[in-house]
Write a protein that binds this DNA or RNA. Structure first.
Lengths: 228, 228
DNA sequence: AATTGTATTAAACATCTGTTTTAAATCAAG
DNA sequence: CTTGATTTAAAACAGATGTTTAATACAATT
């Protein structure tokens, strides 16, 4: 193992270890000693490789959003119906956020940065969030007509993403509210189906969540009134 | 000013000052010296009145959710249509979160605690979140039929709250994404109207967001197919 | 007026934390 | 093998941070 390799190795080890610890405790509460200990590096390594603690943090945030967006891009054929694209988008997003099998520090760290922005935030938004927003935007253009304004399309996007984010950011609250016996609904399949149907129904591309006979009759009557 | 009054005064001053600073920086990054300085108290005051820093934090979180829920309870007459109740609920919630005129440290501190729970979280959920959830629950029972399961009603509630929370927790991101010229849509009137229509449409209680003629025809045909 | 319990203050303490220094080790190039 | 640059290691440093101590001020009680 030569010096360069060793160099890159500790550098990389520091970044990923720091990512985990920053994601868990936040920038201030994470200590350089803790990071170095878990990375098997000397305390001085951080300052040598990254200048200071903030430099390491910024690189960790950058590492968190490099190679992550491919999870959401080109995941479906162009010919697929827009409603199905949205369903897939929602599902991929939930998997991305809620999948516990793979290390979750990347999304946790990014969400921390987005809620509590430092100088790393702008790059994160441009490199990671905006590409996602554009994918959603494209789906939106297919789904809704030209009569829907640009601004309204942004709001629709926020409504969809907001629903998905809730289960990541406020999962502890959802757990407490639901109680032990109802936790089962907090899995990806159920949530993806619900958010998809809720959102598509809001856009008039799926049946409303309530499918009661009388309510549906009322609803259809109302629609006809507008339509004619 | 007698001793007892002075006592209560510094105690209260410490709690509200701590609330502001904890809300702004989080538990770890906030320093007792900063809190005491801004509260005009001695450094030892925190340990004298609250035992330690964590004790003060817990009292600050408690102060943040005492007397705050009345903003959401009994704000409408029982006879009001459920759709209007939901509109009001959403509006009140947004005002509660986004109103910049009143000190916002209470909601910010609560959201911090909810996203990063300490021992103060359980009480916060029971005293503040659950009452709100029950109000929303009651509206939900009026809006949807008995055919909608308990679990599904929870998910509907999370969809509504998730949309509202997005603009509080991730406002910086929304700002960056929208750019300067589109910031105007991030005001309470526009957001309340959008979230209300989006959610009511999802439940079949309002027109879908897209009101294009052809799309509407398709939509109605689909509804009829289910209805008959 | 003396005493007592409570609240405030200034100072000190012990530990933690980010950073720097200095020296040793490692390794590629000449 | 030597040289020179790069990386690691141990120790120390300076400042910040939560907490404690001991003295003081003050109001109520005896």
């Amino acid at each position: 193992m030569n010096a360069q390799a060793q160099h890159d190795d500790t550098r990389q080890r520091l970044i990923s270890t720091a990512g985990e610890i920053f994601a868990e405790h936040g920038f201030k509460a994470a200590t350089v000693r803790d990071i170095c200990a878990k990375a098997g590096a000397n305390v001085a390594a951080i300052n040598y490789h990254f200048g200071d603690k903030l430099g390491l943090y910024i690189e960790a945030v950058q590492a968190a959003h490099c190679g992550g967006q491919d999870l959401l891009l080109q995941a479906w054929p162009e010919s697929m119906p827009a409603t199905e694209k949205l369903r897939l988008f929602i599902r991929k997003m939930l998997e991305h956020f809620l999948d516990d099998t793979q290390p979750s520090w990347k999304t946790r760290l990014m969400l921390r940065e987005l809620a509590d922005p430092t100088e790393a935030c702008a790059k994160l938004v441009e490199n990671y969030i905006r590409p996602m927003a554009e994918v959603l935007h494209a789906i939106g253009l297919e789904l809704v007509t030209d009569q829907v304004s640009e601004e309204q399309r942004w709001l629709i996007g926020f409504s969809i993403v907001g629903q998905c984010l809730f289960y990541k950011v406020h999962r502890p609250v959802a757990n407490l509210l639901l109680g032990a016996e109802r936790q089962s609904i907090l899995n990806i399949d159920v949530l993806a189906e619900h958010i998809s149907q809720f959102s598509l129904a809001a856009l008039g591309k799926a049946l409303p969540v309530t499918c009661d006979g009388a309510a549906l009759t009322d609803h259809i009557r109302r629609l006809h009134a507008v339509h004619n």
